[in-house]
Design a protein around this nucleic acid. Structure first.
Length: 941
RNA sequence: GCGGGGGUCGCCCAGCCUGGUCAACGGCGCGAGGCUUAGGACCUCGUCCCUUAGGGGUUCGUGGGUUCGAAUCCCACCCCCCGCACCA
């Protein structure tokens, strides 16, 4: 870190520039960033998202707001603990991840202690965030495992439960019997994306027993020709929920986990079932039991019914027996020979036996062919989306497949031959190597996001808030619609215990929904004005709801009434949150949860006011990853580009939900840019003179007015990139244009422009801005200055017009010079006559008012200007220039171009002579008559 | 598959809501010139194709449509990114 950076950090800290307290009557802005999770080093992605909050915070401060930007650290959850454990077990990947963060081998050794790991990253991250110059009120910092924060979360959940938003339920989960915990996607070695699916169980009559088949397609029951069991697998008779069932032995354990009452009776070999008959419900058909080795006894019940017309597996297995490709007894063969596919639905693009079509097209030979999976998926998808059941399906005839599914279940339920079980449709292997299965997890705590009233309220939260960019808003509504009950507690990991059920810990996404409110409390906890144990639910009810009597509460809490009222005052003042910014992948969870919880607990006036959404970060066009080796830590970038360079690079990276591409080259440029500004300013001022303002000064001031307007709107809408581009690129170019054009730069103009410029730059590059402010003789800190006001930089339309016309003339002249061959040394510029201008303006206004164009044409016919040409130029100029032309009565085109003739001459490398049509002395090519306003005629010789 | 967001002149990107001022902003890269002992930095000009007078031609994922006129509006299709839950 440079000495200058250190210096300003110290100044800001010493003067408590970013430590706001409530000031009654002063407008406020409360801005937040989701606390980063401390299992790794903060990286450019974190910095990118957080920087948007930082830029906005500094911008709002300049606008005169009392701005609170707090920060905290997220420790809750099992990831940190899990990483420690895996490190302990010698997992090389985890070690590499730590090393990619730049952690020394010696430190990594200590990471087997999860709290040490989190503390290490917290300390390291705090340093980089501070050194980047973020305008954070560090007095309010906390970690999510702090005792006081836990009291806050306990309070939150007690109140949510009272409101009926925390409910208990039993749900199917993918379960690892070894870890004794649900196995999430990222905890799996195999089976990513696989979740419990409900299978329909159909109980086929088998004497007094029921042969129980599991299926995802109950609607095909009328197409069943036989039943498959695996002859090599072990099956069982068992009493299940009081009924007599036959299923694979493996299924019994899984049924038991799903809360079925299972009493095993006896086991036997699958082969024993072969050749016997079972009767199908609904159809009453007697179906033979045949052998098939594709039947997986560890999936479902190990019993399936065969629908060869519509299931490629069934079709192939049946044909295997018929064509003697598999060994089977004589009886089996004879039975099989009598079976034929029974089509029960039609689907476009297939014959009446879709399974056969698919099998033939894929060239599948027998039931061991792996392409059967693909064929099945294809047929299933086609039938699901376009299939219609035929007369063969009896009561379901005419229904679509999805309608028939419901109907089949209904009909089967009536026969009392229907059941259900959950199953993972594909193998799922836990990271620990254990095969997972479905478990009905009992007494799990859920946030009741499916509650329609709660959904409606959450939607209203989003509706009344600003969303930047607007494109992101729809994502919230869709999420709210889609969101189901959310399991909000876990058995292990760090976090807060559910106050009424201490076996459970509030899960990490669920303890982060209204914690911004806690920043109002943490200030007092950190200052030791409030002890963690004093934060009882009653005290917090007072702080957040204003309920209760502060005097008596204070006494019970061991604090003073004054303090308690002060805390309440903090909350009343700072809430609601004005801006919360995060990356787009948090819309479907965190940000929407945030809306839900605020809707549940707080009145409308304390609902979030603004959501900011940004894209993902890419590094050199690719997804950033530690294993790919393109991981850029915040610290690394900060050291490489300096605080201001890093900040500007972040600002210029992307807007809206576009993914931000972090490129070293761009960051280097940003760094160079920031470093070049102060020398540029100094050099420019050195050459400046004291003189009266002229048209060009007015132009620069007027242009700055426009830049301020654009920059301000962009910042208000969190279009950080656009704002930064306007401020750092456009304004710089404006000043350069001015310097190039003017014969003598005017000191006062430059001072005015620079003093506005430095204030606009300061949110992005505050260190440089403080230096520059100092250099310009500005009083106080630029971090506390005022955002430039538009009134101080008046618009001067005729000055703008003069420059615009000059630009156009230069463009035209260059074009002609390029096209014309032969050497030319003099450019004649003919400005249009006053009559031509009058004609042009009149025609414009008549045309805009849809008046009689013909009359105007007639009136000015003697000028011999072609109407087509006038209309063309009219379009070219556009409304903005035309407006200026019409309103700037004092604009004198001839004079302004004449004043610029020397400049033009320098630019074009030829002599430039300005003349006015009607008064010209030299017009050999008779061009002058073509001149129109803002479009002088040219003649090169 | 479902939900959300996108595809613009070598690259990144603005414009699209509110159609004409759009061959289309800005940055990078590249080319020429200036400055400099040189290089870098910086400054200027150029950078779709054609053009001896400010002009013409073909472009904004693909194919249709609406319109006097479409990058912008409508429809269909293709492709990319994000999310899809017991997890940060």
């Amino acid at each position: 870190m440079s000495a200058r950076e250190k210096y300003w950090l110290k100044v800001w800290k010493d003067r408590r520039v970013f430590e706001p307290d409530p000031v009654q009557g002063k407008k406020k802005a409360f801005v937040t960033f989701p606390f980063p999770y401390m299992n790794a080093a903060v990286h450019v992605g974190t910095a990118f998202t957080a920087s948007r909050v930082e830029f906005y915070a500094r911008f709002k401060r300049l606008q005169g707001y009392n701005v609170l930007f707090p920060w905290a650290w997220h420790w809750t959850g099992k990831t940190i603990v899990g990483m420690s454990q895996r490190l302990k077990q010698g997992d090389a990947a985890v070690r590499r991840a730590f090393e990619a963060d730049g952690v020394s081998a010696k430190e990594v050794e200590k990471f087997t202690d999860p709290e040490y790991l989190a503390a290490y990253y917290t300390k390291a991250s705090r340093e980089v965030v501070k050194d980047t110059g973020f305008s954070i009120d560090w007095r309010r910092e906390f970690r999510t495992i702090d005792p006081a924060f836990r009291k806050f979360v306990e309070w939150q959940y007690l109140r949510l439960r009272e409101l009926g938003y925390v409910v208990q339920g039993t749900h199917p989960v993918a379960w690892c019997p070894n870890d004794k915990s649900p196995t999430g996607d990222h905890d799996r070695m195999e089976g990513e994306g696989v979740s419990p699916q409900e299978f329909t169980l159909i109980k086929f009559h088998f004497g007094e027993w029921a042969l129980v088949a599991a299926t995802l397609r109950p609607e095909t029951i009328y197409g069943a020709t036989n039943i498959w069991v695996n002859p090599d697998a072990e099956y069982s008779e068992a009493k299940v929920d009081g009924e007599l069932w036959i299923v694979s032995s493996s299924a019994l354990g899984r049924l038991a986990e799903q809360k079925h009452d299972v009493i095993p009776v006896r086991t036997f070999n699958g082969a024993d079932l072969i050749g016997r008959y079972a009767m199908a419900p609904l159809t009453g058909k007697s179906l033979p039991v045949l052998p098939a080795r594709f039947v997986d006894d560890t999936l479902g019940t190990g019993v399936v019914f065969s629908v060869p017309a519509h299931a490629p597996y069934d079709f192939t297995a049946l044909r295997d027996i018929q064509e003697r490709r598999v060994e089977a007894g004589r009886q089996v063969k004879e039975i099989a020979d009598t079976l034929a596919p029974i089509p029960i639905l039609t689907v476009e693009g297939y014959s009446e036996v879709p399974a056969r079509d698919a099998v033939e097209r894929f060239g599948i030979k027998d039931s061991t062919d792996s392409r059967l999976e693909e064929a099945t998926a294809e047929v299933y998808s086609a039938e699901f989306h376009g299939g219609v059941l035929t007369q063969a399906s009896g009561p379901m005839a005419g229904l679509t497949v999805s309608e028939a599914k419901t109907k089949a279940a209904e009909l089967l339920a009536k026969t009392e031959r229907l059941g259900s079980m959950y199953e993972l449709p594909e193998r799922v292997i836990c990271r620990c190597g254990t095969r997972c299965y479905v478990k009905m997890l009992e007494n799990q705590w859920f946030l009741n996001y499916s509650n329609p009233e709660w959904k409606a309220q959450a939607k209203r939260v989003v509706e009344q808030a600003a969303v930047y960019p607007e494109d992101a808003r729809q994502g919230f509504y869709s999420t709210i619609e889609w969101l189901n009950d959310w399991p909000c507690a876990r058995r292990s990991g760090m976090g807060t215990k559910i106050p009424w059920d201490r076996d459970w810990i509030v899960e990490t996404l669920s303890d982060s929904t209204i914690y911004m409110a806690y920043y109002c409390v943490s200030k007092f906890v950190n200052a030791e004005k409030l002890a963690p144990e004093s934060l009882t639910p009653e005290v917090l009810d007072y702080v957040f709801f204003g309920k209760g009597v502060p005097a008596s509460l204070a006494k019970a809490a061991g604090t003073t009434e004054k303090t308690l009222k002060e805390v309440r005052g903090e909350f009343s003042y700072w809430y609601p949150v004005d801006l919360r910014n995060s990356a787009k992948e948090l819309i479907p969870n965190h940000l929407t949860f945030y809306a839900f919880h605020h809707a549940a607990l707080f009145p409308e006036r304390q609902w979030p006011k603004g959501f900011g959404i940004n894209g993902m970060i890419l590094v050199e066009g690719k997804k950033m990853s530690k294993t790919m080796g393109n991981f850029v830590t915040w610290k690394g970038a900060l050291e490489k580009y300096g605080a201001d360079g890093f900040r500007l690079a972040l600002a210029l990276t992307a807007d809206g939900m576009d993914d931000a591409d972090w490129r070293d080259r761009a960051a280097e440029d940003a760094k160079a840019k920031v470093e070049a500004i102060l020398p540029f300013v100094k050099k420019t001022l050195k050459s400046a003179k004291d003189r009266k303002a002229d048209g060009l000064d007015s132009w620069l001031i007027s242009t700055l007015h426009r830049r301020i307007a654009t920059g301000t709107v962009a910042m208000e809408e969190l279009k950080v990139r656009r704002a930064a581009a306007t401020i750092f690129l456009d304004i710089w170019n404006d000043v350069r244009h001015y310097l190039r054009r003017t014969k003598s730069p005017r000191r006062q103009t430059l001072m005015d422009v620079f003093s506005a410029w430095v204030r606009m730059m300061s949110p992005f590059a505050p260190f440089m801005a403080e230096d520059m402010n100092h250099e310009l003789g500005g009083r106080g800190l630029v971090s506390q200055a005022d955002w430039p006001s538009l009134e101080d930089f008046p618009i001067d339309e005729s000055a703008e017009l003069a420059e615009a016309v000059l630009d156009r003339v230069l463009d035209d002249a260059r074009n002609v010079l390029k096209v014309v061959k032969g050497s030319k040394s003099k450019l004649n510029v003919y400005v249009c006559s006053d009559e031509a201008k009058a004609y042009f303006l009149e025609l414009t206004s008549v045309k805009q008012n849809k008046g009689n164009v013909g009359q105007v044409l007639k009136k000015y016919a003697n000028l011999k200007i072609q109407p087509d040409r006038v209309f063309k130029v009219l379009y070219e100029l556009g409304d903005e220039l035309l407006g200026k032309l019409a309103s700037s009565r004092d604009f004198n085109e001839f004079r302004s171009l004449s004043e610029a003739s020397e400049f033009m001459s320098k630019e074009l490398g030829v002599e430039v002579v300005i003349q006015k049509d009607g008064k010209q002395t030299h017009d050999p090519a008779n061009k002058a008559k073509d001149a129109l306003p803002a479009k002088p005629a040219l003649f090169l010789e």
